[in-house]
Amino acid sequence: MMMMRLMLLGLLLTDVSLASAQETGTINGMVQVSGTVVTDAEVRIRELGLRTVVGEDGSFSFEGVRPGEYVLEGESPRWGNGSQDIIVDPGSNTSVIIELQAVFHMGELLVTPVPGIVRQDRAYQATTVVTSRDLLKLGESSLGETLSKKPGLSSTYFGPGSSRPLIRGMGGDRVKMLQNGLELGDASGTSPDHAVSVEPRLAEQIEVVRGPATLLYGSSAVGGVVNVLDAAIARDLPTRQVSGFLEGLGGTVSDEHTGSLGLTSRFGNLVFTGSGVMRRT
Score class of each variant (00 low, 15 high):
124 Y>W: 00
160 P>N: 11
164 R>Y: 09
159 G>M: 11
161 G>W: 04
166 L>K: 04
140 E>R: 14
199 E>F: 00
103 V>N: 07
197 S>V: 13
110 L>M: 07
163 S>T: 14
198 V>N: 06
176 K>W: 00
104 F>Y: 06
133 R>W: 03
120 Q>T: 03
177 M>I: 13
155 S>N: 09
179 Q>S: 14
160 P>A: 10
179 Q>H: 14
193 D>G: 11
184 L>C: 12
131 T>R: 07
186 D>Q: 12
138 L>Y: 13
162 S>L: 06
193 D>M: 14
222 V>A: 03
159 G>E: 09
217 Y>M: 07
142 S>R: 01
105 H>W: 12
173 D>L: 05
173 D>R: 09
225 V>Q: 02
168 R>T: 02
103 V>Q: 12
99 E>N: 13
235 R>N: 12
136 L>Q: 15
169 G>E: 05
119 R>V: 05
199 E>N: 15
197 S>N: 15
126 A>P: 04
151 P>H: 14
190 T>L: 10
148 S>V: 06
223 G>A: 03
200 P>G: 07
185 G>C: 04
185 G>H: 10
143 L>Y: 05
192 P>S: 15
210 R>Y: 01
221 A>I: 05
145 E>K: 12
210 R>I: 06
144 G>I: 06
136 L>T: 12
127 T>V: 14
102 A>S: 15
103 V>W: 05
158 F>V: 00
108 E>A: 07
149 K>I: 12
188 S>G: 07
149 K>P: 00
124 Y>Q: 13
111 V>W: 00
176 K>G: 03
201 R>P: 00
220 S>A: 14
176 K>D: 04
218 G>N: 10
153 L>F: 07
162 S>P: 00
183 E>R: 08
186 D>L: 10
198 V>Y: 06
120 Q>A: 09
194 H>G: 03
222 V>C: 02
167 I>A: 01
209 V>K: 00
204 E>S: 13
124 Y>H: 11
102 A>I: 05
191 S>P: 00
197 S>Q: 14
168 R>F: 04
178 L>T: 05
159 G>Y: 12
210 R>W: 01
227 N>M: 04
184 L>Y: 07
101 Q>L: 13
165 P>Q: 07
186 D>N: 11
216 L>T: 13
142 S>N: 07
147 L>N: 10
116 G>K: 09
209 V>R: 01
203 A>M: 06
121 D>M: 10
181 G>I: 05
216 L>E: 13
132 S>M: 09
128 T>S: 08
105 H>D: 15
110 L>W: 02
215 L>I: 13
101 Q>Y: 12
121 D>F: 01
128 T>L: 05
171 G>M: 06
201 R>H: 08
203 A>G: 04
203 A>Y: 02
156 T>Q: 15
107 G>W: 03
150 K>A: 14
